[in-house]
Each structure stands twice: as C-alpha cells, then as structure tokens.
Design a protein around this nucleic acid. Sequence first.
DNA 1: CAGAAAAGGTCATTCT
DNA 2: AGAATGACCTTTTCTG
Length: 304
Amino acid sequence: MLLHKFPTDHHYPFLQNCPQNSTDVFYQLPPSTSTASFYSEGPPRFGTFDFGSIMIKEESSPNSDGPRRVVGRLRMPPVPPKLKLCEVCGHSGATTHYGGTVCGGCKIFFSRTVQSRKGFVCERGGQCPMNAGKRAKCRACRFQLCLKAHMSPEEVGRLRDMRLGDYAPIVKKEGTVVGYFDESSQPPTSLRDCTSQIISFIDVYNCGNDEFEVLRAFVNSERNCENSAANKYASFFPTKCNAAMSIQSAIDFPMPICEKIPRLASRSEKIYANYSPRGKPIVGDLLAIGGIFVVCGGAFAIGL
DNA sequence: CAGAAAAGGTCATTCT
DNA sequence: AGAATGACCTTTTCTG
C-alpha cells in the first residue's frame, strides 16, 4: 500500500544522494525552489511516517553562477526496534498480519472474528483499556483496534479462496485510469488496475442503485481526472477536507476517511460495529453519504 | 531456487 | 461443557 511505504527518491528527489544512516548531508536545492519555500513546507511527511527533520542553510557561493549548494543536517527517524509491539494490545513480537502489525493472538482473533462474521458491542462505550493482559476482556474494542491498526478484513480467507480457485488476483498498474462505466471502454473482466476492485466490490456486495450511481460518478471522475484536475472538480464539490488518499487506500483503510469527515466521524463506530465482509458494503456506505470523488494519484476530496 | 514472511489449521488451555 | 483463546506447526506466496 502506497501510503505505508517509506518516501522514495521520486517524492524527494533532492535527497537522492542522501546516505540513509548519516546525519550530515549535502544536497542540491532544486532550481525552482527557494530556501524559504523549502522551509515553509516543514519536514517532509508522507502518510504516517515522519521523515525526520531537516535543517538547512544555503551556502553563500563566491561564484553566483555556480550551483546552489545547500548544507543540511538530516535527523533520521529512530531505528525501530527489532521486536515490534502489537498495535492492538502492545504485546511484543508483533509482525505484519492482514495489513497491521499485531501479535499472533490478535492475528488469530481478527481472522476468527471476520470469518465468523460476528458483530461485537462494547458495554463501556468503546473505551476499554487494551493491553496484553486485558485484550481478551472486550472483543468489540479489540476488533476496533485491529481495524485502526489497518488490518484488512478483505485479506482474511484470501489465501483459502485462492486455493479454491475463486479468487482472481487484481494486478494494480499504477497511473492507469480507465473508465469502467463508460460503455465504449473495455469490459470489466479484462481490466486489471486499481479501480477494477470497485467492479468486484459491486459484484460481491450487491451494491444498490444509489451506491452504484455514486460509484459510477466516482470512477468516471477518476477516469477524467489528471493529477492536476482536482480544482476542476472542486467547483462541483466544495472541498471541506483533503484526506490525501487514493481510492485504493480508502477501500483498504476507511477509518482515516471516517475520521476526516465530520459527518462520518460519529458514524465510524457504527459502521465498524456493523461491519461484515460479506454484508453491508462499507465503502459504498461511505460513498453514498459523502458525495466523495477521487482524483487519480493523490487528492481525495470530499464535498459535503 | 531458497529463504523469509504471512496465512491457515490443529490442539491444548483458559474462561464463562 | 461449550466457547474462546493462543501457541505452534504446516502450507503457500513472495522476493532476491
């Protein structure tokens, strides 16, 4: 998932020659970038990662025609410990399971909960303390934390489905935008990129007509958009916030969207409480409520 | 192709 | 006693 990758040279080309573990680095300031504007953007951030902090000063060059050399001190983020802690209960020895960094107990709990399609209700308003000793006390809160840890219910059973042959892997080709709902376009069965998941989503979850229409507009917007076209659609949907997520991210991790949309924030718990991998379509729910559209490659603008 | 990582299955233990 | 949990193992996929 793109949001969880470490920033690459593509995102910060001026760091191309930066040694990964050093603290003092030298790099060229991009020709079009002033030191002030560089400062004003603050430390580069990407997704949930803080790319350390960068303090720079522009060296005064005796030769004004020479390259603008910048002296910088880059403080890299602390090296994560080898033994990661479970994002749900804090237990040590966590590894990646279903998209989240969790311990074995929480992994199997999440898998069983999704497969059993059970819904839990917290009797204490969803505020139960969670640690290795208390994690089994409230399953509702534990499952909530699993989802907040970016664990993906869709991943549960995927391997088994693949063995049974009823799972068609979807290969995402970054940057491709195809109008699936456009009659002149290719039939969905031959399409393999990010938005094809919407097709399977509609098929699997039997979205209603309203949700289908929103998804249709959604995808057509994406098809018609270039990376710079957000403003064009912003006139149709007054932008209240920018979640900076792709549609793929929204499908995988809807919670951040819920948290960023005021009208949905109060509903997020309800949505997750009712979540069922083969039941009510969570993304369709979000789309139908929000009047949401996606701009390919980044901005995820929400009109309310 | 081999090693690493992640998912799934089984079974003993604990809890209600 | 039945359900829930977690440790451990096997299988599968991914990656270099």
